Simulated assay, not measured.
Amino acid sequence: MQFITVPPATSQPPAGLIVTLHGWGANAQDVASLLPFFNLPDYQFMFPNAPYPHPHSPVGRAWYDLRTENMYQGLAESRQLLVDWLQSLETSTGVPLSRTILSGFSQGGAMTLDVGLNLPLAGLVVMSGYLHPGAGTVTQSSIAPILITHGRYDEVVPLQAALKARETVESQGVAVEYHEFDMGHEIQPQMLEVVRNFVGNAIN
């Protein structure tokens, strides 16, 4: 899997690892451009590219197809690819999964919930995401806390999707921190401030 990796700005060993998954039609470079706004200089960041080309963008990538006729095609393959890659990161970075935050925006947020609920991670961050059909079941005894953020005026992934995700995982005893913002389908600085606080509490 192709990815961008950015070491801590402090030249010290990373306090933790933050993996951020882009949305449908975006790419690793898009989310990597947000790095200054995270303001977490002690952490290593990794931004993977989804495995599939986007049908309408020469530079966009996709974790799976979202067109009606091919809905969710490629999801199983991306899920396995992501799980294998995440499990390999401790060897390559020296940071265990227990100090790794998996985060994602939109389709990347959906992938975060899909694979993150069943890995021993420090925390999950779902920005403007949603649950895949049939997803949201926790199979391990202890599950990382989850941060869900969403725009009230999201015209791509309705707010109802965030509420459903929250309800589904909370019903299984997962601790969820939930925030709504007066915005659309986007990432804004005030959202990343909430993310920064969440990371600090999850990895200490």
Rank of each mutant, 00 (worst) to 15 (best):
P120A: 12
G109P: 10
G151T: 02
F37W: 12
H150E: 07
G94F: 01
D30I: 03
H56A: 15
T139D: 09
R152H: 12
P36I: 15
V83E: 06
L102G: 08
L66D: 05
Q87R: 14
V126M: 12
S33P: 12
G104E: 06
W63P: 10
L102R: 08
Q73M: 02
D65V: 06
R79K: 09
I146S: 07
Y130K: 00
L66E: 10
G94W: 04
T100V: 03
E69V: 12
W85K: 02
L113E: 11
E90S: 02
G123D: 06
Q44C: 15
M71Q: 15
L117I: 00
G134M: 09
V138T: 06
S106W: 04
S106I: 02
L81I: 12
G104M: 04
S106A: 11
Y153V: 04
Q87L: 14
L86N: 05
Q140D: 07
L86A: 00
Y64V: 00
L147F: 00
P96I: 00
L159H: 05
T68C: 13
P41K: 04
T112S: 14
E155S: 12
D114R: 03
H56I: 10
P133S: 10
L124T: 00
A32K: 08
E90G: 05
G129S: 08
A32L: 04
L131P: 01
E90P: 13
G108N: 05
P36A: 15
A76H: 12
L113T: 06
F47Y: 11
G109D: 10
Q107K: 00
I143V: 15
L159T: 08
A62N: 05
D84P: 04
L124M: 13
D30T: 11
S88L: 09
S103N: 10
H150M: 03
E90D: 04
T112P: 03
L82I: 01
A161P: 01
L40N: 05
T137Y: 01
Q73A: 15
Y72W: 00
